[in-house]
Design a protein around this nucleic acid. Structure first.
Length: 417
RNA sequence: UGGCUUUUAUUUUUC
């Protein structure tokens, strides 16, 4: 049975959950608790939360008592599958079955709630822990801090930091990193510095990940120059920025319409031998798009291909957007074709950009082609698409057709704006 | 006489 347990673990590590199940089910004499736990873990890894739940029930049905580990693994499978409600249910079930929930159990449930965007429930659960005799640790607080960051609750995030200090729990870097992100998201860039200072005072030194979060936070607050300062500051502290740090800086500049600086950062990545990835290029391309600099966009598109970075739909969308901004419908149609030739799937945003530039140019044949192509590819029009159709109708005085599109909007359960 | 079972990051549209 030990060998079988190990085999199941190995299959699980390789995401071969069906084979793991077979090993479990075909074992002579039936599986034991260890085999079940290994199999439940394997299901969790492969995102098979329903199978994990079934296995756990099966185990209990076969007269094997559940333990905290068997429950925790099942909860973790639900958490990974985005089933926070199932994870919480299991936590409650543990109490009913007389199995003591440990700090792992609570942390898995908190993480499930965080992933499900349930920050209020996460806070409640955190506060309910001591009355069950389990004290929250840095991981518990970390998970809730992530939830507060994702929910854009910087005020609550600071409250949580104060709370954990008062409880005598040493805040981890995860806690500070997400506090920093939360401040940036809320436009509170001054608080980013406060959080970093507080971190040093508490003896947790900012590392590369912290700077990555801080650079992103500055970008989110529209402070691209401060983002750049942080990118250089970290290097004076001999912390080498990775691709994420550079990408956050590019993104900060791109959103602030600083195309030139974004381009400089990309160049610097090459000179500093930090390999740019698709996000680095897409970030600069987005800035090109906003500036309507389609010549540069085409250059970048070629450059990325020459370094074996395959442009994706995001890249093409930015280039088509650049053409649209420059009102260059011929280039837009051209690049759209290239995209199709390379087998890159367009999304509704790409179609909208293409339809807009063709509509504004009065290129009705191209508009029709785009509409047909959308239909073929099964891309569903959104409100913006219908608005463009109506705009086109109004340009050529086809009021009846415009009304027909209005009806289409309502029929497709959308609210006309 | 077996179980490291829990938390962190980037690009998503045109007006």
């Amino acid at each position: 049975r030990r060998a079988a347990t190990q085999l199941i673990n190995e299959l699980g590590a390789q995401f071969r959950w069906e084979e793991a199940l077979e090993v479990l089910q075909r074992h002579p004499g039936g599986p034991d608790r260890y085999m079940y736990c290994a199999a439940i873990g394997a299901m969790g890894r492969s995102r098979q939360w329903e199978e994990a739940l079934l296995l756990h029930e099966d185990m209990i049905g076969n007269g094997i008592y559940p333990t905290s580990v068997s429950f925790n693994r099942t909860m973790q499978a639900c958490a990974k599958g985005g089933q926070w409600d199932k994870a919480v249910e299991l936590l409650e079930e543990m109490v009913e079955e007389g199995v003591a929930a440990d700090v792992f159990s609570y942390n898995i449930a908190l993480s499930a709630l965080e992933k499900g965007g349930q920050w209020e429930r996460a806070l409640d659960l955190l506060h309910a822990m001591p009355s069950s005799g389990v004290m929250p640790d840095a991981i518990s607080y970390g998970s809730v801090m992530i939830a507060l960051n994702k929910a854009g609750q910087p005020g609550k995030a600071w409250e949580l930091l104060a709370e954990m200090k008062a409880e005598g729990v040493q805040p981890s870097s995860v806690v500070y990193n997400h506090l920093i992100s939360a401040c940036g998201r809320g436009g509170m860039w001054m608080k980013v510095y406060d959080a970093m200072a507080e971190m040093k005072r508490a003896g947790t030194y900012p590392d590369m990940h912290t700077y990555s979060c801080a650079i992103q936070a500055m970008g989110a607050s529209g402070e691209w120059e401060r983002a750049m300062d942080l990118l250089y500051e970290m290097q004076t502290k001999e912390i080498v920025p990775n691709t994420y740090c550079y990408n956050h800086a590019i993104e900060a500049c791109s959103n602030a319409q600083q195309f030139g600086v974004a381009q400089q950062i990309l160049d610097e990545m090459w000179t500093k031998r930090v390999r740019p990835d698709i996000c680095s290029y897409n970030g600069v391309l987005k800035a090109c798009g906003a500036a309507g600099n389609f010549e540069k966009a085409f250059e970048l598109l070629e450059e990325m291909q020459s370094v074996d970075i395959r442009p994706d739909f995001e890249s093409y969308k930015a280039v088509i957007g650049a053409c649209a901004k420059a009102r260059h419908w011929i280039k837009a149609v051209d690049i759209f074709r290239q995209m199709q030739d390379f087998g890159v799937r367009a999304d509704i945003g790409t179609f909208n950009a293409l339809i807009r530039v063709c509509t504004e140019a009065g290129e009705w044949l191209q508009v029709k082609k785009a509409i047909d192509e959308m239909d073929i590819q099964g891309v569903v029009p959104d409100l913006e698409t219908y608005n463009l159709y109506i705009l086109g109708c109004s340009m050529v005085g086809r009021h009846k057709k415009a009304l027909w599109w209005m009806k289409e909007i309502v029929d497709n359960r959308m609210i006309p704006d």
